[in-house]
């Protein structure tokens, strides 16, 4: 049976064949990357605004690094080293949920607790990697750490699409409530919002998103795409509407440019790195605009 992605793939390849878009899009793997970018960009850009608003940047960083440990455990347990989704999802979910559970039950500041959990996770990962190196060449883990569109296949696209759908149906109806809960938990509670439950839901979303995007952006870099476009959008906006939509635009542009530019100009940069560098360039540009243009300087006060 043909892949469900064959129609859009063939359409883009046809456009490249006829010279409408650049010839690099005649390669199926480039088109796969492009399709992923069109999902990953808006998804991470949108959720990223919430990560920034809820001050969960360090948390998402920790979950990204936990994915590496998840991969190492997966390889030891015999999963495919190119797509160890079960282990990655399981370890990251356990990591995220347990961290949130501990955060709700100690008076320790969030960054201290996340730092402790991150160190534990990395120590387990480093130990597991020793075992992994006996089984496979650990250089293949570069793909997991920094992403590679060369290896994106239909399974990865399916995982990404299911995650995107799940995130949209969960996060959209809960957006206002999650935001209010992060601004003032007491106020949210009086309005009937289950603050703790929403925290867990959000932790689950960030974790699932991180794992689903590992293949295209990389475990180490995925959280950067959660933060940088949102941080750039924050530089130039005063309302939530502008914040969210510009974050989505910046994130999607970063993904498209990051995938296209290295191929078009033959640059020796992995897709994940190129995506984040593009996002960083946008962020720097917004910083300069914010510092120099009076209108935005006012907005940033």
């Amino acid at each position: 049976m043909n892949s469900p992605y064959e129609v859009p793939r063939q359409f883009i390849i046809h456009l490249a064949d006829t010279g409408v878009i650049h010839y690099t899009f005649t390669y199926a793997f480039v088109v796969n990357g492009l399709l992923c970018a069109l999902v990953v960009g808006p998804l991470l850009g949108g959720i990223g605004t919430m990560v920034v608003a809820k001050r969960m940047a360090f948390f998402s960083q920790a979950v990204g690094n936990a994915a590496l440990t998840g991969v190492a455990i997966g390889v030891i347990l015999g999963e495919s080293y190119t797509a160890p989704y079960v282990s990655m999802f399981s370890f990251c979910l356990l990591f995220g949920l347990f961290l949130n559970f501990a955060r709700n039950r100690t008076k320790m500041s969030s960054d201290t607790l996340i730092g402790v959990f991150l160190s534990i996770s990395l120590a387990i990962g480093a130990t597991a990697l020793l075992w992994v190196s006996a089984k496979v060449n650990t250089h293949i883990l570069d793909t997991v750490m920094f992403g590679s569109i060369l290896t994106v296949n239909d399974t990865d696209i399916t995982v990404l699409l299911i995650t995107a759908l799940l995130t949209a149906v969960t996060a959209l109806p809960l957006f206002n409530r999650m935001l209010l809960a992060s601004l003032n938990p007491s106020l949210a509670h009086v309005r009937g919002i289950k603050v703790h439950l929403l925290e867990y839901v959000f932790v689950l979303l960030v974790t699932i998103l991180t794992v689903a995007c590992v293949k295209i952006i990389g475990a180490v870099l995925v959280e950067a795409l959660l933060l940088i476009p949102a941080a750039a959008a924050r530089n130039l906006n005063r309302s939530i509407k502008g914040f969210v939509w510009w974050s989505i635009v910046f994130s999607t542009v970063s993904c498209l440019v990051g995938i296209y530019a290295p191929m078009r100009y033959d640059l020796p940069v992995p897709s994940g790195g190129a995506i984040i560098l593009t996002g960083a360039a946008i962020f720097l540009a917004t910083m300069i605009i914010r510092m120099t243009v009076p209108r935005y300087r006012e907005a940033a006060i």
């Binding site: 959209l172 109806p173 957006f175 206002n176 209010l180 106020l187 939530i240 939509w245």
Partner: peptide, 8 residues
Amino acid sequence: TCQRRPVF
């Protein structure tokens, strides 16, 4: 605080 539709 008073609507379900995401504010953005």
